[in-house]
């Protein structure tokens, strides 16, 4: 039972992060390799607001979330906008460079010592015992809940929202979308903002659950196979992919060798690339468009 809970928690972490990869890829065909760093930045934003607004923790959390949305939009407006129309590789490498820059800045501002935003906000992290003798901490539970909420909201937004529809249109055919009066830059900026927002949500919840230091980037990287296994342009795929990766990882840690934990997602990724490169739910034509 504990195993199932562990898988679910890890899967929701991966799913919450992976939807950021999917959003940006689906809208602008750019693979954002700085997602791990952006997510870490979100968590550090919480540290910053928590030290500023320590008497009103909820406001600190909300402010940090809002800031992360803004940061994501800024990244597009000031950096990635220049890369639209360039080679896809150049855009991807720009995100890599952005990742390094962010990592350096985070180290400069907050230093490498671990932080505990939960203590700063003065919140508890009680552990609940579920039927079947499984244990889950409050924030791990919140992770699962927020994954469900975020995916539900994203689904509704993309399906019925005006801007969501514009985002889908821009992803399907940017030229045609622009011709119909959709402001591509605004749509792309929104996609970057949302993606950073969801990533930061995951980052903050992980930081609240178990503290924060620069190793969080690795979690972001490991979520990437989840997005690709499900299909880089499919949100539903990211959910399934996250479940598969999490199940594989938890299973391997439990039954084979804990040292393998950091490699398993990538092994699954390689298998997927060999068997079905476009992922479980991805569109096949995507491969040629890269």
């Amino acid at each position: 039972m504990q195993l199932v809970v562990n898988i679910l928690v890890l899967a929701s972490i991966y799913a919450l992060i992976a939807c950021g990869y999917v959003l940006i890829y689906r809208v602008s065909r750019v693979l954002n390799l700085a997602h791990g760093e952006l997510m870490m930045l979100g968590a550090y934003l919480l540290v910053a607001t928590a030290s500023g607004l320590s008497n009103s923790p909820v406001a600190a959390l909300l402010l940090a979330l809002a800031l992360s949305l803004v940061v994501g939009g800024m990244v597009y407006l000031f950096l990635m906008r220049r890369m639209t129309g360039e080679m896809v590789l150049a855009a991807v490498l720009t995100t890599v460079a952005l990742g390094i820059l962010l990592r350096g800045l985070i180290l400069l501002i907050w230093s490498a010592s671990p932080r505990h935003p939960r203590d700063m906000l003065g919140w508890e992290n009680p552990v609940f015992t579920l039927p079947g003798d499984a244990r889950i901490s409050l924030y791990a539970g919140l992770l699962i809940v927020s994954t469900v909420v975020v995916y539900g909201a994203l689904f509704l937004f993309l399906r019925f929202g005006r801007w969501g529809m514009r985002m889908r249109a821009a992803g399907q055919n940017p030229l045609l979308a622009a011709q119909r009066g959709i402001r591509l830059h605004a749509v792309f900026a929104l996609a970057w903002g949302l993606s950073t927002f969801t990533g930061a949500t995951a980052g903050m919840l992980i930081a609240l659950d178990s503290g924060l230091d620069s190793t969080m980037v690795m979690i972001g990287l490991k979520a990437f196979p989840a997005a690709l296994v499900g299909g880089l342009d499919s949100l539903a795929g990211a959910l399934i992919g996250a479940l598969i990766i999490a199940a594989a990882e938890v299973g391997v840690i439990r039954f084979i060798d804990p040292l393998l934990a950091d490699v398993v997602p990538f092994l699954v990724l390689i298998v997927m690339l060999v068997v079905r490169p476009w992922g479980l739910f991805g569109t096949r034509e995507e491969l040629d468009r890269v």
Binding site: M83, T94, A97, I100, L101, G104, L105, L108, S111
Partner: peptide, 26 residues
């Protein structure tokens, strides 16, 4: 006062240089 964090400055500067080359001098 940044002397203790040469490593971090390196990281950040390297990122900036890479971005500058990608954007302005491909």
């Amino acid at each position: 006062r940044l002397a203790g964090s040469v490593f971090a400055v390196n990281y950040a500067a390297f990122g900036i240089v890479m971005i500058l080359f990608l954007v302005f001098e491909p």
